[in-house]
Amino acid sequence: MSIIDLTSMGEPQTDMKDEINKRLLTLKDEFSEYCYQCGKCTSGCEAHKLLELEPHKIIALLKRGLIDELVNSDIIWTCMSCFKCRERCPQKIAPVEVLFALKNMVVASGKQIPGNYSMYLQMVLSKGLLQDEKEISTRDNKTLKRADLGLPEISKPVDMAKFMGMLSKLAMEKV
C-alpha cells in the first residue's frame, strides 16, 4: 500500500476492511464502497447531536481501511440503532450495520466492551434471557410479581445445559 495517513500515521488494514465487506454481503447489506459521502446519514443521525457520531465518517475511514482507528474509538458504541442512516441512504449503504460489524470485531479481539454488554451476554448465556423476572411497583407503590397478575410462567430455555453448550460454541463464531 502506498498510501500513508500523515495526520495520525495510522496504517490501513486492508484485510479487516475486506472482512467487514464480506460480513455485510453475508448479512445482505450493501457494499460500503458505493458511499459517495453526501452526509445524509450524519444529517439525520439520532446520536450525532448528543454524542457526535458521524456515520459518513465511519464509512470514509472504512473505505480507507483505517479500521484500527475505528475499533479503538468509543464513538462506535454511541449508535442508538435507530436505523435512520440505513433507511435513508441514497446508495443503500448501512452505516448502522458497519458499526455492528466493528463492535463485533472489538469483542472478538478480546478488548474491553463498554457498559453492560458483557452482562447481557452473561445473562443470555446463563438464563437464556436478558434479565430475571422482576418485581415491579404500581403507581400506588404496591409491589407485584408476574404471578400476582395471573400471568403464566415465563418462557425460557428448558434444558439450560444444552442451551449454554450451543451458545458457547456460537459465541466463538464470526458471521
Partner: peptide
C-alpha cells in the same frame, strides 16, 4: 522513483501521502 502527492481528504479530515 516515486511520484508523491499529498492530499487533504475532507471525507476523513486527514492528510494522506500517496506514492505512485
Amino acid at each position: 522513483e516515486k511520484l508523491v502527492v499529498d492530499v487533504f481528504d475532507t471525507t476523513t479530515g486527514k492528510l494522506f501521502e500517496i506514492s505512485s
